[in-house]
């Protein structure tokens, strides 16, 4: 057990070292990514500002607390750029080109390999933007926070990352059958975009969809509410449960799908 854990950590270190060695060849990306975050952030802040300039409340959320939701959105966006996008979009290619063969032949969990092989530093600007927005939103609305609410919010953040990851991996897994799957990346990203604003800002029907069908509410609103001390324990435990169920489903589904893997012909 200890040996397998040490193998996992050593592998991860070498995965990321080799992946970063390949990424630094493209340094211009950092500037592109910074501009993209600034442009994107200005757009989102402008839309929010338009709502609040008339003194309205967006679904019961004031300007400062909405910034916290937007902050969590940028944290997820950063995580997506750093880990999800470089790895999960490759799954389709591995299946199309048959390079999945080499991964399946290694004595290491194939889902772990497929989910962590690559790392991209270009999501750091998004992470920083997220942290700044959250800090500012919190400072302006509640001023102080307890350690317990920070820990609870961290747990909610981990849950939301697990939900996003598991959904993405589940969709990517279907490419074992439908080799030319629609771009899972785009589908999930457009769903994630809906999480920029508090879930209660949406009409009731959309809110229901975003809570029970596409769990957008659990991605940004619940962590923000938890940090602001507004969340209920029932919502928090639901978030953890959904994350666990989706993660375990993604593992079981991957194992099931491999039975149908035909390996690209030579």
């Amino acid at each position: 057990m200890i040996k397998s854990i040490s193998i996992i950590f050593r592998t991860l270190r070498i995965f990321w070292a080799t992946s970063l060695a390949g990424e630094v060849e493209y340094r211009l990306n950092l500037f592109v990514e910074c501009f993209s975050v600034i442009g994107n952030l200005s757009g989102s802040l402008f839309v929010l500002y338009m709502f609040y300039s008339n003194g309205k409340y967006l679904g019961g959320w004031n300007w400062n607390s909405s910034l916290v939701v937007l902050g969590f959105y940028y944290l997820l966006e950063g995580f997506t750029i750093i880990l999800l996008q470089p790895n999960l979009t490759r799954i389709v290619r591995h299946i199309q080109q048959g390079s999945l063969d080499f991964i399946l032949l290694k004595p290491i969990d194939s889902q772990f390999w497929l989910s962590s092989r690559m790392i991209s530093p270009w999501g750091i600007p998004s992470l920083l933007a997220g942290l700044i927005l959250i800090a500012r939103g919190i400072y302006m609305s509640v001023h102080t926070m307890s350690i317990s609410s920070i820990l609870a919010a961290l747990t909610m953040l981990i849950s939301s990352l697990a939900i996003l990851y598991s959904l993405w991996f589940l969709i990517a897994t279907t490419s074992i059958w439908f080799v030319k799957i629609w771009n899972a990346n785009e589908v999930l990203r457009s769903v994630l975009v809906a999480g920029r604003y508090p879930i209660s800002a949406y009409p009731e029907v959309v809110r229901a969809i975003f809570t029970f069908i596409l769990p957008v509410a659990f991605l940004t609103t619940i962590p923000a509410e938890t940090l602001l001390g507004k969340s209920y324990i029932s919502w928090m435990s639901s978030s953890i449960m959904i994350a666990l169920i989706l993660f375990l489903t993604s593992r079981a589904f991957w194992k099931y799908a491999l039975r149908f893997y035909t390996s690209a012909s030579s």
Binding site: R13, T18, G22, K106, P107
Partner: peptide, 16 residues
């Protein structure tokens, strides 16, 4: 994009 030695390092780690 990388030299073979990097793939060898990955494999060495994976095989413990």
């Amino acid at each position: 994009d990388l030299p073979p030695i990097d793939t060898l390092k990955v494999n060495a780690a994976v095989y413990g």
